[in-house]
Every structure is written in structure tokens, then in C-alpha cells.
Simulated scan of single mutants.
Amino acid sequence: MQFKKTYKFAFYTSLFIALLTTFVLGIFLYIQNLWSWYVLAFFVIIFWLSFFVIQHRVQNFIYKRVNKIYEDLTLLESAEFTDKKVTTDMATLTQEIDKYARDKKFEIESLKIRESYRKEFMGNVSHELKTPLFTVQGYVETLLDGAMSDKKITKKYLERASKGVERLIYIVNDLDMLTKLEVGNLVLNKEVFNIIDLVQNVFDLLEMKAAKRKITLTFDKVYQEPIYVFADKERIQQALTNLIVNSIKYGREKGTTEVTIEKLLKNKFIVRVTDNGEGIEKTNLKRVFERFYRVDKSGSRKEGGSGLGLSIVKHIIEAHNERIYVESEHNVGSEFSFTLSKPVE
């Protein structure tokens, strides 16, 4: 006969009590020559009476003490437990408590990681904003201290201060963009467009920047036919620009940045941006899309930028419900790739 697991303790304890008391009563009645089939009725009554008493009392006993433990532990919320019926099955109860404790431990570890990222993020924001602010402040104070009398110096310092302000605006705009992407407030204006033309436009825009480092921007082959995708053209151009700028910034001088567009699935294309630059060590690969995360803690800042480029790329691609990937080998090069959907026919 099968019984619910939660009643096993009460069942076996009641059975033991009923058998023991019936056995003792049976022996007494046998000695007194008073044996009767009423003994069986006694057995049934004792069994069910014991069962209900034990089930009720032990359940309340466990509930009160376990609930007290939950109330005493500041990291566990007793409110989550009070609505659950505590059973007399200790194995099940132990499993439930262990699971609850593991969940809470995981939450605490996640909070610690987030706190660590928050502190690092705040430190990075402070550093990124502090540098251009001090630059602007230094030039303005120099002018106020008397340098304005020299027109050449005034013009020179104002131009440098202007560049510092531009960098501040750049960082703030990127932070604003990233915030909108993360909270989902950025509306995508999807349309059908030729991704080949878009990549070529980005090449044209960055041609001079690449020429300064003698880096060649090129396709992997000549694309005779257009390749149409369905996405937000402006956002994808921004994502491509960030990736190619990144490849120029960290690429090898006289190197190459190559864009490849391949058919991935029946309704998907994959766009690859490959360079033969310094590459990324494996320990840094998992964090390259984090806000302000720098692979090179010193040299990368000399190249300018907000430190948010890759993070913005990731959020733009994910806002399209697409995937982004990175593969890299230190001192060999890197490849960033992302998927795009074909137009619905």
C-alpha cells in the first residue's frame, strides 16, 4: 500500500504504537481468558488516533522551531516560509531548507560580484570624466591668470579646452546611449538595407583614421550582389563603426581590418570584423563588453574614446535579438562577429 511521503513518519510511528499496545492488551486479555475480536477494533482505533495526533503535533513542533530559526537568521526571509506547510518528512524538509540556503548563498555571491563591478565602474567613470575636466580646468585657469593677453596662446588653449569639452560630451552621450539600451528605452527603426553599402560607408568615414596608422580597410572579397538585411540602419552603422575604430586603435601598424559577410542560417547573415592586431588574452575575453573595461589599462587611454564602444555594440546587437561573438589570440589578432536577420519575404 502506497502512502504519501509526507505521512510516512506518522504512519510508521502510529503502526508501532498500535501494534505494541494491542500486543500488550492481547497478552493481558489472553491471560485473563477475555480474548475477543474487539482487540482488532482497539488496534484500528489506537492506530488512527495516534496517526492524527502525531501528524498534527510533530508538524507543529517542527514548524514552530524551524520557523523560529528562519526568523533568527537575518539573511533568510521567514515570510517566504510561513506560507508553506511544513511536513513531518525530515528528508523532504531538509532538502527544502538546503535548497533555500543554496539559493540565498547564490544571491549573496551575485550581490558581491555586482558590488565589485559597481565599485570598479564608479572608479572608471570618475577617471574618464576627471581627465578631460582637469584638462579644461587647467587651460581655463591659465587663461584667467593672465595668458589671455597673448592671442596665440589664448587660441591654442581654447582649442585644447574645446577638445576636452568634446571628450566630456562624447562620454556623456555614450553613457546616455548605453543607459537607454540597457533599460530598453531605445526604439529601433528597422528597415531593409544593403549591408555591403553600409560597410563601405563606414570604411569611407574611417579612411583617414586608418591611414594614420597605415591600416588597410577591406572586404574579404568582391561582393558582386547586394546583401539585404532587416535592422536599424543607423544603429548597425554605429556598431560597425565602433568595431572598426577598435580594430584600428589596437590593430598592428601597416596591418589590415577585414570585413566578411556570410550566410549563417536560412534567415541569418553573420558579419565578421577581423584584424591582425595585438589580440586579447583569454583572461580578458569575458570582460571585453563591460562598460569602461580596459584590456590595456594604460595605453588604451592614450587613444581616446569613452571606453564604452564595445559595450554599446553588444547592447545594440542584443536589442535586435541577435548574437555577438568574440574570438582572439594574443599577438595574433581578434575577430568580432554578430548576426543580422534577412528581410521577411
Rank of each mutant, 00 (worst) to 15 (best):
K151Q: 11
I270Q: 09
K209C: 00
P343M: 11
S341V: 13
L19N: 03
N276T: 06
A18K: 07
S311E: 02
I113S: 12
K152V: 11
S334D: 08
F16Q: 04
L340T: 12
K342D: 04
Y223P: 07
Y325W: 12
F23V: 03
K297W: 00
F193D: 07
E290M: 13
R287A: 00
E159S: 07
L264H: 07
Y7V: 11
F338G: 10
M90Y: 14
E281D: 11
F42P: 07
L73I: 15
N331G: 03
Q238Y: 05
I270N: 05
L25Q: 01
L75A: 12
K302V: 12
F338T: 11
Q59E: 14
D197Q: 13
L19C: 11
S149W: 02
K266R: 08
I69Y: 14
F134S: 11
N267A: 04
L73N: 14
F81Q: 14
N242L: 00
I227Y: 10
H320T: 10
N185Y: 14
V259F: 01
V39P: 03
N321Y: 10
F338M: 09
Q224M: 03
I153C: 00
W35E: 13
N267Y: 04
L178F: 01
V39S: 11
I108E: 06
S328A: 12
L76N: 09
V140N: 01
Q238S: 14
E327A: 05
F3T: 01
D174K: 08
E182F: 05
V165E: 07
Y228M: 03
G305S: 03
D103W: 05
E234K: 12
T260D: 11
S300R: 04
L186G: 00
Y157E: 10
K5L: 03
D176A: 12
P343Q: 13
R323K: 15
N284W: 02
